[in-house]
């Protein structure tokens, strides 16, 4: 009997403690973030909308059209159009499309990207009125220099080394004879260089002239032909827009 009463009093006491604990919270400022008014302070690792970064220092486009992101994407939402420039022999990016309606924001593409070009931004407001509007093209995807700098610093990414400027012509000349096959023995082939820069990001800038005999450079060669033929097919199918893009893009990346 007394045990029962004691337990009743005890449980009542704990109920009162609970009530008082909750009631004390009335005296606190609300922790609610009112979203459209105040944007949430998201961490750098947040996986939001995909975007293509430019070099935050030189503002050159980081994509090297290596198609690794396209291959790794489980949803097949990335679609890269590139062709081999006849002058330089390098791959030139014509269009880069990501269907955000398909994307599941797994972040695998950002993992494999050798140049840290494709990144997850903190932007998550992508709602639109049609599914077609969710397919972002190169223009929509490419970040400005300031935005790139912001995300590079936020994600603690190393700043990639700029592409060597004074070497367009020799590189083009060198690339012409060796059309289909990459030249691993040649010193500093420009096509492989940005990849090198990303892979060896922490090495000193002096190491740029290292010969590109690594796996990063040699592996893509096997698939290059197939890619090229695919690209030419695509160009045939839709020549005009891609040509326009191709014209527009180099200007943008240069400037």
């Amino acid at each position: 009997m007394f045990g029962l009463v004691g337990r009743a009093v005890e449980s009542l006491y704990y109920v009162c403690v609970g009530l008082w604990t909750v009631a004390k919270h009335t005296g606190r400022a609300p922790i609610t973030k009112e979203f459209p008014d105040t944007m949430p302070d998201l961490p750098g690792a947040f996986r939001g909308r995909l975007a293509l970064a430019v070099n935050p220092e030189t503002s050159e486009h980081l994509c090297i059209s290596c198609r690794q992101c396209e291959r790794v994407c489980p949803d097949k939402c990335i679609d890269i159009t590139a062709h081999k420039s006849p002058e330089t022999g390098k791959l030139e990016l014509i269009d880069f499309k990501i269907d955000h309606g398909l994307c599941m924001f797994c972040g695998l593409c950002t993992e494999v990207c050798p140049t840290t070009c494709i990144i997850n931004t903190n932007d998550f407001e992508m709602s639109d009125y049609s599914r077609e509007a969710l397919i972002y093209d190169l223009k929509k995807l490419t970040l400005t220099q300031d935005e790139s700098a912001h995300y590079f610093s936020k994600k603690y990414l190393p700043i990639p080394k700029p592409k060597p400027k004074p070497a367009p012509k020799p590189a083009a000349a060198a690339a012409k004879p060796a059309d289909g096959v990459a030249a691993p023995a040649k010193p500093a082939p420009p096509a492989a260089k940005p990849a090198e820069g990303a892979a060896a990001a922490k090495s000193a800038p002096a190491a740029t002239d290292k010969p590109a005999g690594d796996a990063a450079a040699t592996k893509p060669t096997a698939e290059k032909k197939a890619d090229d033929s695919k690209d030419s097919e695509k160009e045939k199918a839709a020549p005009e827009p891609s040509a326009a893009e191709g014209k527009a893009e180099p200007d943008k990346t240069e400037g």
Partner: peptide, 8 residues
């Protein structure tokens, strides 16, 4: 309820 749970 919002007051008790520190919301708005």
């Amino acid at each position: 309820l919002a007051l008790f749970t520190v919301r708005k």
